[in-house]
Simulated scan of single mutants.
Amino acid sequence: MAPTIETRPEQPYVSIRTQATLAEWGRVNALIGPVYGWLTERDITPAGPLFYRYHSVAGDVIDVEVGVPVPEPVIGDDTVAAGSKPAGQYAVLLHKGHPDRIRETFAALDEWSEASGVEFDVTDGVWAGRFESYLSDPAEVPDLADWETEVAYRVRH
């Protein structure tokens, strides 16, 4: 399946940024609770699903944010940072299945980029916008094999 190209507006969010290897990924997943807890403490309703924003990969270390969209910009603190998904055009592909298999979707996007000539917005190994958004609510879809995850890469103009 080929990705769709979508034009998206800027979207404010809050997040916690870290660096980890895949072997340390439990530490990344452990940031989900603190992000949602921060929002709950401030009575801020999420404006979209949980996402991971990938900035870069150096060796086996991934620079990643665990974030949640918010309805309007907020001020972060020492724990949670305020940021925004950049506006622009994104190549979007839906991953269906266990998140451990998401590399298959990453590979499909890379193959599509090569075949189509559409370049992703990456400069010196740093992504301008690479997002993995978890569309399935674990309370409603407990079987990870049934999850849907949106992968969106900002494309270069």
Rank of each mutant, 00 (worst) to 15 (best):
G97T: 09
Y90G: 02
G83E: 04
D100T: 13
V80S: 06
T79K: 07
V68F: 04
W112E: 11
G129Q: 12
P86M: 11
S133K: 12
G117T: 12
P71K: 10
V64L: 05
L93E: 00
S84E: 12
E114W: 03
D77N: 12
Y90S: 04
A128G: 10
T123D: 11
R130F: 14
E72R: 13
T105D: 05
S113L: 08
I75A: 12
R130P: 02
W127M: 10
R103C: 00
I102F: 11
D78G: 11
V64Q: 01
L135M: 15
G88H: 05
V66D: 10
H98P: 02
F131T: 13
G125N: 11
A82L: 02
P73A: 05
E65A: 13
Y134V: 15
V80E: 02
V74T: 11
L94F: 00
H98N: 13
T123S: 12
K85Q: 14
F120Q: 13
G97E: 01
G129H: 14
Y134L: 15
E72P: 05
G125V: 12
A107W: 00
P99M: 00
E72H: 11
E119F: 06
F106V: 07
A108E: 09
I102N: 07
A115Q: 14
V122C: 07
H95W: 01
Y134D: 15
V80H: 05
L135C: 15
S116N: 06
V92F: 01
D110F: 10
H95I: 05
V70F: 02
V64S: 02
V118C: 06
K96H: 15
R103V: 04
L93M: 12
I75P: 00
T123C: 03
Y134S: 13
D110E: 14
I62A: 09
E111W: 01
W127P: 06
G125T: 12
P99D: 01
G129N: 13
V74A: 09
P86F: 08
P71T: 08
W112Q: 09
P86V: 11
G97L: 07
L135E: 15
P71I: 09
P99Y: 06
P73C: 01
R101T: 14
P69H: 09
V68T: 08
G129P: 13
V66I: 12
F106Q: 07
Q89S: 14
V126R: 14
A108I: 00
W127Y: 15
E119P: 00
H95V: 06
A108D: 06
A81M: 11
E111H: 05
A81C: 03
E114A: 13
L93P: 00
V126C: 10
L94G: 02
V64Y: 03
I102L: 14
V118S: 05
E72N: 08
V64T: 13
V126W: 09
D121K: 11
F120A: 14
E119W: 05
D77I: 08
S116Q: 07
Y90K: 01
F131G: 04
S84L: 06
P86W: 04
D78I: 01
P71C: 09
H95C: 03
I62S: 04
V122G: 09
E114D: 13
V92P: 00
D124K: 13
